[in-house]
């Protein structure tokens, strides 16, 4: 089992959620759902997080912030969009200030359905995101290897 699967650290950002999904995210941490079973820790710090949980639709004001948090996370990283709003903007999709779901700003790996999303499905989303991270890690290693080989070959040519 890859280490990332056993220790996915989370950061949670409320884009412009009605707080329904946020409460369910917090519920995941309580004894009933106990996200720490999967090695999850909710850090407040993007630099220490592996999986980005976003709730709510993205609007013009917070799009740069979503982008910024995403950029500060170490590679590889995964994004989980939680709830209907995070998927498409939900009932707010047509609002003048809403740019749409999370995917309008950053690439999303897992969508968790629901309005609000259930804690069980949020946990499921996190576990899936961890698996995706594992794949990304593998791919990253492969590219790095290829790069190194390429550089070596370049050096040999010279």
């Amino acid at each position: 089992m890859s280490s990332i699967e056993r220790s996915p650290w989370l950061i949670h950002y409320d884009a412009s959620s009605c707080n329904g999904c946020d409460i369910e995210v917090l519920a995941c941490l309580t004894p009933v759902y106990d996200a720490e079973r999967f090695g999850c820790i909710v850090t407040g710090d993007p630099k220490q997080a592996d999986i980005f949980l976003v709730t709510g639709s993205v609007n013009h004001l917070n799009a740069p912030i979503v982008k910024n948090i995403y950029d500060q996370m170490p590679e590889p990283k995964a994004v989980v969009a939680i709830g209907a709003c995070a998927y498409s903007g939900g009932v707010f999709a047509e609002c003048y200030n809403v740019s749409g779901g999370v995917a309008s700003t950053i690439p999303v790996d897992v969508y968790v359905p629901g309005c609000a999303a259930k804690p069980e499905s949020i946990l499921d989303g996190v576990v899936r995101a961890a698996q995706i991270l594992k794949e990304k890690e593998k791919a990253m290693r492969a590219t790095r290897k290829a790069e190194r080989k390429g550089r070596k070959a370049e050096g040999a040519q010279r």
């Binding site: 950002y13 710090d45 630099k47 740069p64 912030i65 910024n68 500060q72």
Partner: peptide
């Protein structure tokens, strides 16, 4: 280099909020 953590609302290089 990356910028220091500034709660998301960072503005350009150096330490500033927008």
């Amino acid at each position: 280099l990356s910028s220091a953590y500034m709660s998301g609302r960072v503005s350009g290089p150096g330490l500033a909020f927008k």
